[in-house]
């Protein structure tokens, strides 16, 4: 064997010329996702808007000094641009800007919390169903199918009706509504990645199921699930506002965008622009979350940006 291997040129093993080697090592995956996000103007813009909304709601006492519950009979339904009430006042004379700022707290909470709950519960069930397969998959997925039989808004209303109104019940209702689609998304991406060769290779290397899920499945599944969760928030904002609008969520006199929209309904002819403001906030926030999820999706797609 010795002479045959000696006299033939074997440049591949000794000093392999690395012709197509790129010049510098590329950053890690999440770092490069971040860099791509920084170059995506639309996503950056909507993220800025969302931070703005977050700032005026969480930091409401910093941007307004008025009391969100203190009305004034004299100052009822002032138009936009009134001195002291730059966005006008509502039907009981409360400053609308202040109400919008404080109202955003509950609106965002009532929208984001159900999605977070469904992310954990649905994500866990979906990954479990996807990775385990077999009868466990059938059990979980068929149970979810039962919930799918109802339109989501009807289901939410029914659950709220059952539990009674109030913020916590609306959150529970929406979480129940969001768990089935979350399970389905998580199950689909997990099943796909479970059958990938590299997961098989990891199984062939004798590592345990938990290790495989942690190192190989989660990393590839988390991205799509998070993107989906972000897009769910945009739906959640509208649904939770809808529940409040119907009187099933937050109770008066608390400020919440859906509820405000309902109570300003009567003033739609007197002050149409003021009455539309809570709706505008709902629309703006929902759209921003939607666009942000699109941005995440394309930033996370490695091959798209190759």
């Amino acid at each position: 064997m010795s002479f045959t291997t000696m006299d033939v040129e074997r440049p591949t093993l000794t000093a392999a010329p690395m012709l197509d080697a790129p010049a510098a090592p590329t950053p890690g995956y999440w770092k490069s996702v971040g860099q791509r996000l920084l170059h995506d103007k639309v996503t950056m813009a909507v993220t800025l808007v969302l931070f703005g909304i977050l700032f005026i709601t969480l930091g409401a006492p910093l941007v307004t000094h008025a009391d969100p519950y203190q009305g004034s009979v004299l100052a009822r339904l002032k138009p936009i641009g009134t001195p002291g009430h730059w966005l006008g006042t509502d039907e009981t004379g409360r400053d609308l800007w202040t109400r919008l700022c404080y109202g955003g707290r509950l609106s965002l909470l009532a929208a984001i919390l159900p999605v977070t709950i469904s992310l954990f519960v649905g994500g866990f069930l979906g990954i479990l169903a996807g990775y385990a397969g077999g009868w466990l998959n059938t059990l979980i997925m068929r149970t979810m199918d039962v919930f799918y039989a109802f339109p989501s808004i009807l289901l939410a209303i029914a659950i709220c009706g059952l539990l009674g109104n109030g913020l916590s019940n609306s959150i529970i209702a929406l979480a129940v509504v969001f768990i089935p689609p979350m399970v389905r998304v998580a199950e689909t991406v997990t099943t796909q990645s479970r059958n990938l060769d590299f997961v098989e290779a990891a199984r062939a290397s004798g590592t345990t199921t938990l290790q495989i899920i942690r190192y190989h499945v989660l990393a590839n599944v988390l991205g799509p699930i998070l993107v989906y969760a972000t897009s769910l928030i945009s739906v959640s904002i509208i649904l939770s506002a809808g529940l409040s609008f119907l009187g099933l969520g937050v109770t008066p006199p608390q400020a919440e965008w859906g509820l405000m929209l309902n109570s300003l309904r009567q003033a739609i002819y007197a002050q149409p622009y003021v009455a539309a403001l809570p709706g505008l906030m709902i629309f703006l926030t929902s759209m921003c979350f939607n666009l942000m999820s699109d941005g995440f999706r394309s930033a996370m797609d490695v091959r798209l940006n190759k």
Partner: peptide, 13 residues
């Protein structure tokens, strides 16, 4: 495995 691409985890160096 046959497919050199799918048998490597795209998120791992």
């Amino acid at each position: 495995f046959q497919d050199s691409y799918t048998s490597l985890n795209p998120r791992m160096t």
